[in-house]
Nucleic acid binder design. Sequence first.
DNA 1: CTAGGACCTGACGTTGACGTCAAGGGCAAG
DNA 2: CTTGCCCTTGACGTCAACGTCAGGTCCTAG
Lengths: 136, 136
Amino acid sequence: MRIGEVADRAGVSTRALRYYEEQGLIAPERTGSGQRSYAESAVERVQMIQQFFTAGLPSRTIRQLLPCVDTGHGSPEAFAMLAAERDRITAAMADLAAARDALDALIDLAHHPTPEHCPALRDPAWSSYDAGLVRA
Amino acid sequence: MRIGEVADRAGVSTRALRYYEEQGLIAPERTGSGQRSYAESAVERVQMIQQFFTAGLPSRTIRQLLPCVDTGHGSPEAFAMLAAERDRITAAMADLAAARDALDALIDLAHHPTPEHCPALRDPAWSSYDAGLVRA
DNA sequence: CTAGGACCTGACGTTGACGTCAAGGGCAAG
DNA sequence: CTTGCCCTTGACGTCAACGTCAGGTCCTAG
């Protein structure tokens, strides 16, 4: 499979695929004339890489954890890194939830007929807002 | 309050505060000699700004939504933007959850005595993994 | 054989939220 | 007065994940 097809099927640009190779995340074969030749599994691999990028992991970290995916096991250090990243992601999710709740509070505020600058925001509620359910 | 104290109390750098002002997110007073003079409420405001930055909102968007915070109500467009950002954040949380589950699967894999490259990863499980509870 | 599309390498451009350095001004203590 | 810390503006540096362009190669269809 050539680079264009992988790009199409994985939903990324060819530039991104070359970048991933440059970063040591994929190692496609080469034809005699120098063109990249990807295995079928490359599509899934690229999608997984994308997923980690989306989660905010830098390429260096992804490069470190991919061997675990390939070999199916990892050294203790690799294991610690996986756990650390998992925790980072969990923390990021909490931050997102807090921001979303803040937005929900604003939306709620905007929905009110605004009697007179109803409070419930400026006080200490920015972190402890208890996840109200507001739906459009 | 001068810039250094605000920076300390809000947990950001003075550079960041000047950047926020440059981006139109805060408008501190000025003393006769040109030094910035912040109100007490600036600390909370900066923390809120930080929260939105952490959630991935660009400064331009934050600038648009801050008037809603200040006035306590918003135009219909502002309301639509708030809802759009809320949805973006929700989507980002889903992406994070998927990546975290992928990492959990890897961690689980690393915990196994690795009998023979146990599957459960490469197949279609990257999005539908059912949030197993693994704790260090 | 030739047109045109896909591919190659190399290299510079982009964006956002700041970091960092340079060169000076303001201000309370001693 | 001067020492020293905080403040000012201005401007360039950074980092990551690519986008984009340039100039050349490969390959397949007609």
